[in-house]
Amino acid sequence: MASARPKAFLEGAGLVWRRQRVVWLIYFFTLLLAFLSTRGLVQRTAHVLDHSAESASRLVHGFDISAFLELQQIPQSPLTGSNDIFGVAPVISLLFLIFVTGGVLAVYYRDESLPFGPFFEACGDHFWRFLRLLIYFAIAMIPVLILVGVTSAAYHHIDEVSVSPLTAVRFGFVAGIILLLLAMVIRLWFDMAQVIAVAEEERAMHRALRQAARLLARNFLSLFWLYLRISIVAVAVFALGLYIWMVVFRPESIGNAFILGQLLILWWIATRLWQRASEAKWYWEFRGSQPASVPVWTPPPSPVAPPPPAPAPASGVPA
């Protein structure tokens, strides 16, 4: 199976690029959320810093940790306000992402730009399904969390009895990698269940999960390598960006730092969508490659857009 769809990796990237409106939608929502959630904090900080001669010398030309901590300790600290939704932002973001995932997958599966109405219709259709799926996901992660606990206890035991600190560190590193891979497999399983739910209009999430589990079991290497490669690229580029931000940029390069920071967020969003696009593409191709005895699935007609076009001959994807 792995060799049957070797181009899903690149085709997924191409799909993200072609249908980049969803990337921008998520990015601008995230940016707006971050902007709004930090307003109170920024305004209070500006009140303390903007007219103080102290701020430029300690926070602009370098980053004096003590200046930042002093901001927390002064009597009218700007960092201790209570009107921020700073902590709520990830929750709002989570709900938003659950909401848009149905629309995003519909766009990727059909490889077409859905107009506003159908897009949000797809989002709405899948919101409650994916919320249920999130609950299933939390349940599926329980064994992983138990393993994390066991590993942590083992780590502490090894650390306690070993003369060298590195014994426990090496164990922790290897165990951490294994647990991470395990968590990724579970995530991939649920990703595929989401793709199936959208592609097959499957309403019962437990059926989608069963189907996804069978699919994953039979095509594990192909799918997991697809998912893992994108994850590695995502983290590597992100780490490089952080390095440039922290080490290469001069402390005074505030504008450059902002641009780089936003590019990194955009990259982070795009790579996750790259995974989704690749998975959708993979599934689309998988369905196309099934023997004729299996009923060929037809995407549900969009109220506005025509059915998805046949894959371009140049792509080499089997019809």
């Binding site: 701020s55 430029a56 982070w268």
Partner: peptide
């Protein structure tokens, strides 16, 4: 001189955006 504020704002916004996108 709002450079210090903008610098902190950058960090805070980046932190919120990144944590939000971890949920992705």
């Amino acid at each position: 001189d709002s450079r210090a504020t903008h610098k902190l704002e950058n960090l805070w916004m980046f932190a919120v955006e990144w944590v939000s996108q971890l949920t992705n």
